[in-house]
């Protein structure tokens, strides 16, 4: 068991190092940061001096090792664009993205499970079919267009909700939250729907099909035979059985939510890490790009690791499998 955990952790570290290397090799191709750093009046000599200062003339492997060395000491470097430590910028921006991702996930789970149960119970009903079909519209248009359409309808035409930003935020320690002001709560609605729509559809469909399967099992038939009410069967037994896959999928989708936050944040000028990353790409702000990719990787690898270890704990057959792997 311990040996497996250690091996798995070592593998994860290797994965992280690979991700970093790939990410670093990419930066050369995103563009040249020097052009953005110097004004129109720069000379050829300026370009050379700054390239040298930034270490851009080193082979990218050398740049990578330098970055790793600094990162291990908790130093993610200084943003070219803002002239501030990257770790500070990310800490400042993370609450916005995490709150948006949290609300989106909540929206996706609540509506996803609710509508999923409904469409499963009324499998052939008109409403159920209608919901199933229209929910697909949400995933058949690109996110950016949905965001812009929502802005057009709810901000410009109706004037109900703000079109950009987070509204007023309140600081609690270093965390800035938009949950405590009216404008903050209003501001999160459109971006959260835009971002959560895809996951909502996914969860709804998953719940529906899991429910349909569970409802056919002997176990439910037996419950019915025992004379339990339909309500108790649907919610007490069937739904409970669908929750495990739903939780797993939701967990795995968190990464995807954070990634797609890049688009949503750009459309709504939401001041989170996704917008930070897009700005970094446009400006070729290598320290910010590197830190963002590393953070995302660490997060994904952690999720993966936890899921794997959980399976290991839950399913004893896998552990037998694992112990024979070495042979």
């Amino acid at each position: 068991m311990l040996a497996y955990v250690i091996r798995r952790v070592l593998q994860s570290i290797f994965v992280l190092l690979m991700v970093g290397l790939v990410a670093f090799s990419m930066f050369r191709f995103v563009g040249d940061p020097v052009e953005n750093l110097l004004g129109q009046e720069r000379t050829q000599a300026d370009i050379e001096r700054v390239r040298d200062q930034l270490g851009l003339n080193d082979p990218f492997a050398v740049q990578y090792v330098k970055f790793l060395g600094n990162a291990l000491q908790g130093n993610l470097g200084v943003s070219y664009r803002q002239g501030r430590p990257v770790s500070e910028i990310i800490a400042e921006r993370a609450p916005a993205t995490l709150e948006l991702a949290g609300v989106s996930a909540l929206f996706a789970v609540l509506f996803g499970v609710g509508l999923g149960v409904f469409t499963a119970i009324r499998r052939d009903g008109f409403m159920a079919n209608f919901i199933m079909t229209t929910s697909l519209i949400g995933v058949s248009l690109p996110t950016f267009l949905i965001g812009i359409l929502l802005i057009y309808i709810f901000a410009v035409e109706l004037g109900w909700l703000p079109s950009f930003g987070r509204g007023e935020t309140v600081k609690i320690g270093w965390w800035s939250t938009g949950f405590l002001t009216e404008s903050g709560l209003k501001a999160i609605i459109l971006p959260a729907i835009t971002l959560g729509l895809y996951q909502m559809t996914l969860i709804m469909r998953l719940v529906r099909s899991e429910m349909l399967e569970v409802l056919r099992t002997d176990y439910i038939k037996f419950a019915r035979a025992r004379g339990l009410s339909t309500r108790a069967i649907n919610f007490g037994h069937a739904l409970k059985n669908t929750l495990v896959p739903v939780i797993t999928v939701t967990g795995l989708q968190i990464g995807s939510i954070i990634a797609f936050a890049i688009i949503t944040e750009t459309v709504f000028q939401w001041p989170g890490v996704g917008l930070l990353f897009i700005n970094a790409i446009q400006f070729v702000d290598i320290p910010v790009m590197a830190a963002y990719l590393m953070l995302i990787s660490v997060m994904f690898v952690l999720i993966n690791l936890i899921v794997d270890l959980l399976y290991f704990v839950i399913d004893p057959r896998l552990s037998a499998d694992a112990s024979t792997r070495g042979h």
Partner: peptide
Amino acid sequence: DIQLTFPAILVALL
């Protein structure tokens, strides 16, 4: 895993 680590849009950008 490495592949999943990079969300689809990031892979494509890369």
